[in-house]
Simulated scan of single mutants.
Amino acid sequence: MGNFLRPEVRAFLERWREVLLAGVVFLLGVWWALTGVGINVWLGYIFCLIGIGWGVAAVQPARFAQDGDGPGVVQIRERRLAYFGPLDGGIMDVADLSRLEIDPTSHPDPSWVLTSIEGQVLAIPINAKGAEGLFDVFASLPDIKTNTVLDVLSRTPDARVTVWSRVKPLLH
């Protein structure tokens, strides 16, 4: 049964599954709102709102996710990033992150380049296994614009682009 769908279709369904489930909840809500009686009508409206909210929240992580066939593995545990690659890797606390960049020229795949306050640099391929979890980490950074991150990721620039940097306090 697992071989019934082509791998591309299976990957698409896996990537967009939450958005599709939100659509099902929304459609169930519409059906109840239009055909229900009594409290089912109100439950239908509530399901519509839940489906819309869930769908809006699920679109950004789905746009961020890649195929996961890149080199290395990303682990995120208690606000600490770890990347284990075939040639390099490292561990970095999210609180120490000072700059986030995307480098489309890195080999073999474009990479997220994370720089800490101390100057440690960690390059993580955008399609490494577990890299989809980076969306939640990036979204938690202060003053980051997630739409900017998604736009840069979707258009693949020619040179390294700084997506976010920590505002440094001015000392007088």
Results as ranks from 00 to 15, higher is better:
Phe64Pro: 02
Phe64Gln: 04
Ala65Asn: 04
Ala65Asp: 07
Ala65His: 05
Gln66Val: 01
Asp67Val: 06
Asp67Thr: 10
Asp67Tyr: 05
Asp67Ile: 04
Gly68Ala: 12
Asp69Gln: 14
Asp69Arg: 13
Gly70Ser: 14
Gly70Glu: 11
Pro71Met: 03
Pro71Lys: 01
Val73Asn: 10
Val73Phe: 13
Val74His: 11
Gln75Val: 09
Ile76Ala: 06
Ile76Arg: 04
Arg77Thr: 12
Glu78Gly: 02
Glu78Met: 03
Arg79Val: 03
Arg79Lys: 10
Arg79Gly: 09
Arg79Asn: 14
Arg80Met: 15
Arg80Val: 15
Leu81Ser: 07
Tyr83Phe: 15
Phe84Lys: 06
Phe84Trp: 05
Gly85Ala: 02
Gly85Cys: 01
Pro86Arg: 08
Leu87Asn: 09
Leu87Cys: 01
Leu87Asp: 06
Asp88Gln: 05
Asp88Val: 01
Gly90Met: 10
Ile91Gln: 15
Ile91Gly: 12
Met92Gly: 04
Met92Glu: 07
Asp93Ile: 00
Asp93His: 07
Asp93Phe: 09
Val94Pro: 10
Asp96Gln: 09
Leu97Pro: 05
Leu97Trp: 04
Leu97Tyr: 05
Leu97Thr: 03
Ser98Lys: 03
Leu100Met: 13
Glu101Pro: 05
Glu101Arg: 11
Ile102Arg: 09
Thr105Met: 14
Thr105Glu: 15
Ser106Asp: 14
Pro108Val: 07
Pro108Arg: 08
Pro108Ile: 08
Asp109Gln: 10
Ser111Arg: 04
Trp112Leu: 02
Thr115Val: 14
Thr115Glu: 15
Ser116His: 00
Glu118Val: 10
Glu118Asn: 09
Leu122Val: 08
Leu122His: 12
Ala123Asp: 13
Ile124Lys: 04
Pro125Ala: 13
Ile126Glu: 14
Ile126Gly: 07
Ala128Pro: 02
Ala128Ser: 15
Lys129Pro: 00
Gly130Asn: 08
Gly130Ser: 06
Ala131Asn: 09
Ala131Phe: 12
Glu132Val: 01
Gly133Pro: 04
Leu134Ile: 07
Phe135Gln: 03
Phe138Asp: 00
Phe138Trp: 08
Phe138Thr: 00
Ala139Trp: 03
Ala139Gln: 07
Ala139Gly: 02
Ser140Phe: 07
Ser140Ile: 10
Leu141Pro: 07
Lys145Phe: 00
Lys145Pro: 00
Thr146Lys: 01
Val149Phe: 08
Leu150Val: 00
Leu150Met: 01
Leu150Pro: 01
Asp151Tyr: 08
Asp151Arg: 13
Val152Glu: 13
Ser154Asn: 08
Ser154Met: 03
Arg155Ile: 03
Thr156Lys: 14
Thr156Tyr: 12
Ala159Lys: 12
Ala159Tyr: 12
Ala159Gly: 06
Ala159Met: 11
Arg160Gly: 07
Arg160Trp: 06
Trp164Pro: 04
Ser165Ile: 05
Ser165Cys: 04
Ser165Lys: 12
Arg166Ile: 06
Arg166Pro: 05
Lys168Leu: 09
